[in-house]
Amino acid sequence: MHFQYSIEGGDFSRAGNASSQLKKLLKQLNVDSQLIKRIVVALYEGEVNIVAHAHRGTIDVDIEPDKVFIRLSDEGPGIPDIKQAMKEGYSTASQKVREMGFGAGMGLPNMLKNADKLNIESEPGKGTIVELTTLLR
């Protein structure tokens, strides 16, 4: 089953909408609550990254009996050094974003922790694609 959500950069008040929607669906599907938590937390971080760092983006979710696949693609500055971005605490977030409680540099590490597979592709100046896979055991 396929679902799509669109995200506007800079709209912090609505960050988390897609994760809330997906959570509702996964609860309806009686997916194990610990798994739901992992998926939702990872997606939430991805959503916030688009809001905080990019201009706009799309989230595609594919729910299959054995896995949930999420693809977050955005138009934005991209990530020049992915290895560095993956480091805990690394963040280029502005002071303003930090004051709103975002930008602790834990987003990408958190996604890695909560997904079974994380794949990031980025083209500086164009955008970023993040793919998250969670197996439903």
Partner: peptide, 20 residues
Amino acid sequence: KPRSIVKLDDDMLEAMKKMK
């Protein structure tokens, strides 16, 4: 104990069918 009213079915495949 949880007793979800949210789930469409105990069985996920069945729940997916119902969700569709």
